[in-house]
């Protein structure tokens, strides 16, 4: 069974813990946490990830900027990105998808919902 590497970019430790809890039942997943967009880019430069989960509203660099930079990067442009945010507006969703996000979930999150999206993107049965 292949090992999956997930990068969680979220300024709230509580949210990071919740996301990790939601995905812990998937075996062979290694989680890496980042506090904001810049930290996320730093972690991306150190490893190759199978999926990125990011918040939008974060200090230093927001999630949308991070997504656009990832999509411009030759090495990481194909990594699926899931956005988990408080922004529930239609325009926010469309903007994120246009920038290259693969899925858009709003807070408060439901663990089964996160699990389903990640399984679909990683093509896990």
């Amino acid at each position: 069974m292949p090992e999956y590497k997930l990068l969680i970019v979220e300024d709230s430790p509580t949210m990071r813990q919740l996301i990790i809890f939601a995905l812990k039942r998937l075996r062979n997943i290694k989680f890496t946490e980042a506090d904001d967009g810049v930290d996320g880019l730093k972690k991306l430069s150190q490893d190759i990830y199978n999926l990125i989960i990011t918040d939008i509203n974060m200090p230093v660099m927001d999630g949308l900027k991070l997504v656009s930079l990832i999509r411009k990067d030759a090495l990481h442009k194909d990594i699926p990105v899931v956005i988990i945010t408080t922004e529930g507006g239609k325009e926010d969703r469309e903007r994120a998808i246009t920038l290259g996000a693969n899925a858009y979930l709003t807070k408060p999150i439901q663990a089964p919902q996160v699990l389903k999206v990640v399984k679909e993107l990683l093509k896990i049965e």
């Binding site: 709230s12 430790p13 509580t14 949210m15 813990q17 919740l18 809890f21 807070k107 408060p108 999150i109």
Partner: peptide
């Protein structure tokens, strides 16, 4: 997770921040 985070620090500002996070995110 909420309970764990709430008692993870003794810094007043951090505690307030964690309460805020719980109310926003959870």
């Amino acid at each position: 997770i909420a309970s764990y985070q709430l008692h993870s620090t003794l810094d007043f500002k951090d505690v307030l921040q964690i309460i805020m996070e719980i109310i926003i995110n959870l």
